[in-house]
């Protein structure tokens, strides 16, 4: 079915993140000097930076984390979600440190709980965009 939900509105600084999703890669912004991870794009907090994000680069990350907080939507605030409710939207504590908000798929909403290990799963929604949903991690995959 054609995509009938909102499309991503991509900020220029975040284009490499969305480009990586199209390749089915989950990348985070990493400091090349001290190894700290960031999402969304930011200057490194740990030391002086080279100009214009020169100290950082997008690097492949684990795509894994744990549910930190979540909700279950019983109302579709956009008509495209009418057949999806109830659905889970969650805040994920990524293994690398940053927090990441996305939809949880691949399980019954009632199975979702804080602390649940989750991993990225890619959904190609149009030729131009891929979304990073997360789903419960496969047993033994961690």
């Amino acid at each position: 079915m054609a995509w009938n939900k909102p499309l991503p509105q991509i900020d220029r600084d975040m284009e490499p993140f969305w480009d990586a999703l199209k390749r089915h890669e989950f990348v985070l912004f990493r400091c090349q000097e001290c190894g700290a991870w960031y999402w969304p794009a930011a200057f490194c907090r740990n030391h002086p930076n080279k100009p214009l994000f020169g100290s950082l680069a997008w690097e492949k990350a684990s795509g894994k984390g744990k549910i930190f907080a979540f909700n279950i939507h019983y109302r579709a605030f956009h008509p495209g979600f009418a057949n999806d409710i109830p659905y889970v939207y969650a805040l994920i504590d990524l293994d690398e440190g940053p927090m990441f908000g996305t939809r949880i798929t691949g399980c019954d909403p009632k199975e979702v709980h804080i602390g649940l290990p989750v991993e990225v799963v890619y959904e190609d929604i149009t030729d131009k965009y891929t979304l990073p949903y997360f789903q419960p991690s496969k047993v033994g995959a961690r």
Binding site: L7, F81, D84, T102
Partner: peptide, 12 residues
């Protein structure tokens, strides 16, 4: 708006 996170994912 550009940079708005989450609308395609259900954060509406």
């Amino acid at each position: 708006r550009p940079g708005l996170w989450g609308a395609p994912l259900g954060d509406l």
